[in-house]
Write a protein that binds this DNA or RNA. Structure first.
Lengths: 185, 185
DNA sequence: ACCTGAACACCGTTCAAGT
DNA sequence: ACCTGAACACCGTTCAAGT
């Protein structure tokens, strides 16, 4: 059911975004890969912004799915929080190495509103999940703030490691977070 | 002594990068603002990548200066570490709101090597300064890892707050870091 | 040494024209 | 409904030509 032209555009665009970011999304190349011409894309997506937003929405669905998977695999909230950094680690590791950080990083003016909305959604999905786990361990008010802090710290670790040091550095930073008690050890 | 054409290009480019990021750096607009034509820029900088790297180098000099200022204003390493998040806060707050995070965020393939080199330098400047302060408080080996963690966490806080929530969220996340002991309180 | 207009190959997007 | 070639206004960059 995923063989429609629209679906092919989406998955190819995703690959292109992963490799070169939102700005690297190229309509002529994208169309050529699929076997159509650039103007044809506008029959499926009204603009590059809309296509970018659709790709970002995919990312949101993916994190949500990954978070749900963690929730099901692990019994205790503590075990879930232990597994959490693995999501960003995998994104840093594999071909999906961009996660949403590249979108995030693009500044407000560059990225169109539709895409920004999805970025916000991505943050909210993460923080909401974290707060849900944390609220089983500590008072609700603290849990909310702590969820924010954990997401920011892990996202920052991914960003820093991409800039310099790669996976080993990411692991080191996460270990430090655990040593200090920001994350359960 | 800063009134040379080259200097005007640099400062104008900086403003443009702050507002629209590396990709938003536009040679025709940039030239027009200064009062010359786009091809003339190539007489001062061999490429957009070189100009971008020069702007990034400015950012590095600025953090270094800001860190030195903190070192001089505060006596104890603890006081220095207390003041550290203020640098990223100011970058998030004022017109200089991009800091280096937008560069950082740009993925490896997008941004040319010369600019990436400066990004790495930016990280190193921060981590080195942090490690210097921390090593006066705890064993050297722990200090290095902790410096990595603090930089990543603060950068992540800035990134997250830019994406959603702004200054109040940044302050909340930093407060959480302090509450948990990642940063001195 | 520094600047320039014209041109190059790119880009997102539009549109009239095809099936 | 879906695709297309041609054209639009943009972009970084080059180059021959000016001072």
């Amino acid at each position: 059911m995923s063989n429609t032209t629209r679906e092919k555009i989406l998955s190819t665009a995703r690959t292109q975004v992963q490799a070169h970011g939102y700005d690297g999304l190229n309509f002529r190349d994208l169309a050529a890969t699929i076997g159509i011409r650039a103007p044809s894309l506008y029959h499926h997506f009204p603009s590059k912004a809309a296509l970018g937003a659709a790709v970002a929405r995919r990312y949101c669905e993916d994190v949500q799915a990954a978070l749900d998977a963690i929730s099901q695999e692990h019994d205790t909230p503590r075990a879930c929080l232990l597994a959490y950094p693995g999501i960003f680690r995998k994104a840093l590791d594999g071909d999906n190495r961009i996660c949403l950080a590249s979108f995030l990083s693009a500044q407000s003016d560059d990225v169109p509103e539709e895409v920004q909305t999805e970025i916000r959604e991505f943050i909210n999905i993460n923080v909401t999940w974290l707060a849900g786990k944390l609220s089983q361990l500590e008072p609700e008010t603290i849990a909310m703030r702590r969820a924010d802090a954990i997401y920011a710290a892990v996202a920052g670790a991914q960003l820093t490691a991409r800039g310099l040091g790669g996976l080993p550095r990411y692991d080191g930073i996460i270990a430090s977070y655990r040593a200090v008690g920001l994350l359960p050890a």
